[in-house]
């Protein structure tokens, strides 16, 4: 399993801030596609962090990973 975290408008669109996924997609790219299809959201401009580090689409996922979907940030 892996844990998914959603923030800002994504959290509102998904309806949850934290979701546990029982399967483990092979890569970040595959996970993004699965999440887009399942929750009908657009992740084109969304960055992904795996275990609190920004990750590229080709990064492979491991059981236990915490994957955060990070919309364009607006701090400051």
């Amino acid at each position: 399993m892996i844990t998914l975290l959603f923030f800002a408008h994504l959290q509102e669109a998904v309806g949850e801030g934290r979701i546990v996924l029982s399967n483990v997609p092979e890569t970040v790219k595959e996970l993004k596609q699965e999440v887009e299809n399942r929750y009908h959201i657009d992740l084109k401009q969304v960055m992904v962090a795996v275990n609190e580090e920004y990750a590229r689409d080709d990064q492979t996922l491991q059981p236990g990973d915490i994957v955060a979907f990070i919309p364009p940030v607006s701090g400051g």
Binding site: F7, I70, P71, V73, S74, G75, G76
Partner: peptide, 12 residues
């Protein structure tokens, strides 16, 4: 401040 607006996961 410029880097905060690029990489720190905070939203308003």
């Amino acid at each position: 401040i410029e880097r905060i607006k690029q990489i720190v996961p905070i939203w308003k």
